[in-house]
């Protein structure tokens, strides 16, 4: 009896809750860590980037106005589904990053734990980064955090799953929506994570994942007037990072520069917050 031929997956983009191919029709060959053919990934274009921003903006109102408890539950649900897909992810991380099974297992476990850590932040943010302010007069005065809006994220190039989770989860918990450009050479775990997100009660458009080259589509996203912030963590080339930061100034995007540590931290959350202060007179 001959060995069964496996059914391979077509890796597509993740935009607005759907999995379209690139409108450009372009794909590029992705190799595994040993240089063998792994898949043809979609190569996102400028238009895909614009579609992703449109989807992210459309989703922002609903996502940001959910209660923090609800967002926390949904993000925790992502961790649950991620845990259930552990074996698949271990295999994909091994293939993409060339690490041992044990190491890949530790990476996937860390990715799950990172989701859990950030999920728990959703309904504590205001108490930790907000303030009741003691002003010099009879006024109620309260400062509270809000999400900044649509965030474009350049995911780390090497750490295909854990690195992606470490930059994505801290953006989402406060109510931002995201357009992620995955690792160029190791994009496949990002698409699998997209499948997990699409089956975890995360509303369509909250996360949009583009596979492709940040150096190519980054300038369009960085210059997009409906994007509020830019995380350059995954941009390894200093010239490209500088160019994107220059583009981002067109509408004063909040920019997180490359080199910011990715380990779980409140410092990954706060760059994508706005603090709003509300005054009201006190009187009878």
């Amino acid at each position: 009896m001959s060995e069964r031929l496996d059914v391979r997956k077509t890796y597509k983009l993740f935009i607005g809750g759907a999995f379209p191919r690139s409108e450009s029709g372009r794909t590029y060959e992705v190799a595994d860590a040993k240089g063998r053919f792994a898949a043809n990934a979609s190569k996102a274009s400028r238009k895909d980037g614009r579609d992703a921003v449109t989807a992210a903006r459309k989703a922002f109102g609903g996502w940001s106005k959910r209660t923090p408890y609800n967002r926390g539950q949904i993000l925790y649900r992502v961790a649950e589904v991620l845990e259930g897909r552990r074996d698949q992810l271990v295999a994909e991380v091994r293939a993409a990053e060339g690490v041992s099974e044990k190491r890949a297992g530790a990476i996937v476990d860390a990715a799950v734990d990172t989701w859990v850590w950030y999920a728990g932040w959703a309904d504590k943010l205001s108490q930790v980064t907000g303030n009741a302010n003691q002003v010099n007069g009879p006024f109620f005065n309260l400062t509270a955090p809000e999400p900044t809006g649509v965030v474009v994220i350049a995911a780390p190039q090497d750490s295909s799953l854990l690195g992606l989770v470490e930059v994505l989860a801290p953006v989402l918990l406060s109510g931002n929506t995201a357009v992620v450009v995955s690792s160029l050479a190791r994009p496949l775990p990002a698409i699998t994570l997209s499948e997990i997100l699409s089956t975890s009660d995360v509303p369509g458009g909250v996360v949009n994942v583009l596979t492709g080259d940040i150096a190519e589509i980054g300038p369009w996203l960085a210059g997009h007037l409906d994007v509020n912030a830019l995380d350059l963590t995954g941009v390894d080339d200093a010239d490209v990072a500088r160019e994107l930061e220059v583009e981002a100034a067109v509408n004063l995007k909040r920019v997180l520069r490359p080199g910011t540590p990715t380990a779980q931290s409140l410092a990954r959350i706060t760059p994508f917050l706005e603090h709003k202060t509300v005054w009201h007179p006190i009187g009878v």
Binding site: N133, N136, F139, T143, K276, W279, P281
Partner: peptide, 14 residues
């Protein structure tokens, strides 16, 4: 956001 007031400033208020 100033509610029922406007242009108030204070060093304790972001």
């Amino acid at each position: 956001v100033w509610a029922n007031t406007f242009n108030q400033f204070d060093p304790a208020s972001p």
